[in-house]
Design a protein around this nucleic acid. Structure first.
Length: 480
DNA sequence: AACTACGCCAACCGCAACCAG
DNA sequence: TCTGGTTGCGGTTGGCGTAGT
């Protein structure tokens, strides 16, 4: 047992990541791409090994991660896929957009295995335990895939069970886990198996991170509330819900915090389109999954996937691209940070990765910042010389400040996301990368720092459309 | 209030595959 | 072909929070 070779070279940190480390890594990768992982910690100024950085990125900081608990449909899909693929978590994860192999593996080991066993199904063979016990290898590591028919004919499919956390409402909406977001809601806490924010029944504060930004999980929870509240407030125009100021997110934080009204956010206090845009991707994913025959989307060997969640840019991004070349980030801040005496940030605002996306466009002047600085996703695919020209230390302070300004400008993020959502609703993405491309369009209107009135009006119209589309999703959600 | 057991999950670890020189 | 570096994967561990006593 020993550390990875790269870890011998110098004294490297281990364990949980601090907000500062996350920000460094996020900033570096969004700006330069990861390139060679072994060089990332050095260039990003991290005392970590490249392997650790890669893991952190893949499992946590990646922009396309879907957070929240697994839905019943996702669980069923995992079971079906596991029956076919065995413990090939990365391949299973490839069929579940936004989910990581680690996440699925953990879910399997902690929950699904038990559920299956409880239902009398051998989690290894996916056959009834009585059969497995008669001679089959219940714990053999050499998984023998079974046919999809066997899966579908399982005597006690999970979807038909009476588990407490299924179906109404979807677990992904109601459960809050793995972060310290203080949602003080009886409904939520009832549906959550655990809350990791102890001693906050009254004051809504957490021991480690007293002030935290909402996470995607949290938005899912809140989105559910929004859906509920919207049914009674559907007459409210979406245009009136634009974020009133740059303090928008701060107001949200206040609403999440100790001063939150009973039941949390209300429609009049926050922007539903922000909720929608921040959850629309999850909805899309879920909707896609619900509408798919799970086994019909099994691995296509001819189309390699990547656990990075990003398609190789060589095929997706023209070299002389006038196409958007960027990715965007959603809210991604449910950080399970280490707690180091005296050093743990009590305010994780710096770690909030409310980053937007960039765009390469015809308008080089207006978008030079994005075009020149961030989202070089395809770096790993670049030639070494190309890498060298594109990977360099942070040297342009002004540019970096601009990035920081952008990353922390919720209005830009929210407004941009709104347009993305509209575009997505008008033209459903076929792939995750398409989503990224679509999102990258958003800054054509923002001009990098502000939204023109024309764009503003256009956005309002789009938001109206978006809201209508979202209503459809909302109803669909409630049905489930 | 203190202690213990348990569950969850982020992160670590070793191994194998891949790739460039 | 060999070698060293890098990446990806799956198994495992350890820390933290919660529930139970």
């Amino acid at each position: 047992m020993g550390r990875h070779s790269c870890c011998y070279k110098q004294k490297l940190r281990k364990g949980l990541w601090s907000p500062e480390e996350d920000e460094k890594l996020l900033r570096h990768i969004t700006k330069y791409g990861h390139g060679c992982w072994s060089s990332v910690p050095k260039l990003a100024g991290l005392q970590r090994c490249g392997k650790s950085c890669r893991l952190r990125w893949i499992n946590y900081l990646r922009p396309d991660l879907k957070r929240g608990t697994f839905s019943q449909q996702e669980e069923n899909l995992i079971i079906e896929l596991h029956a076919v693929l065995g413990n090939r978590w990365s391949q299973i994860a490839a069929q579940l957009p936004g989910r990581t192999d680690n996440e699925i593996k953990n879910l399997w080991n902690s929950c699904i295995k038990k559920k299956l066993t409880h239902r009398g199904i051998d989690p290894n063979t996916h056959k009834p335990l009585s059969d497995s016990s008669t001679g089959t290898t219940p714990t053999t590591p050499n998984h023998t895939p079974i046919s999809s028919n066997q899966v579908h004919n399982s005597p006690t499919p999970l979807s038909a069970t009476s588990d407490s956390n299924q179906m109404s409402p979807p677990p992904s909406i109601t459960a809050v886990t793995n972060h310290h977001f203080p949602v003080d809601d009886a409904n939520i806490s009832n549906s959550s198996s655990k809350t990791k924010c102890p001693n906050n029944n009254n004051n809504n504060t957490c021991k480690e991170n007293p002030v935290l930004a909402p996470t995607n999980k949290d938005y899912l929870v809140l989105f559910d509330r929004f859906l509920t509240s919207h049914e009674t407030e559907s007459s409210t125009s979406s245009s009136s819900r634009l974020p009133p100021s740059d303090n928008y997110f701060h107001q949200q934080h206040l609403n999440y915090g100790p001063n939150a009204p009973p039941g949390g956010l209300s429609m009049n206090q926050t922007s539903p389109q922000l909720w929608l845009t921040q959850n629309y991707r999850a909805l899309q994913i879920m909707n896609h999954q619900f509408n798919s025959n799970s086994l019909s989307i099994l691995v296509n060997p001819s189309e390699p996937t990547t656990s990075m969640g990003l398609k190789p840019p060589t095929s997706a991004i023209p070299s002389s691209s006038t196409e958007p070349q960027a990715a965007s980030f959603g809210i991604n801040s449910n950080v399970h940070y280490y707690s180091e005496a005296g050093s743990a940030s009590s305010n994780s605002s710096t770690s909030v990765s409310n980053t937007g996306s960039s765009s390469s466009s015809d308008n080089n002047n207006n978008n030079s910042f994005f075009e020149n600085s961030i989202f070089s996703w395809g770096l790993a695919e670049c030639s070494p010389s190309d890498k060298e020209t594109r990977i360099h230390p942070l040297e342009d302070e002004a540019e970096e400040n601009k990035l920081s300004e952008y990353l922390h400008n919720p209005f830009l993020v929210a407004a941009a996301a709104a347009e993305v959502t509209t575009r997505q609703s008008q033209s459903p993405p076929e792939t995750m990368f398409n989503e990224i491309k679509l999102e990258s369009h958003q800054f054509l209107c923002t001009g990098g720092s502000s939204i023109s009135s024309a764009c503003y009006q256009q956005q309002q119209q789009q938001q109206q459309q978006q809201f209508q589309v979202s209503e459809i999703y909302a109803k669909d959600f409630h049905r489930r």
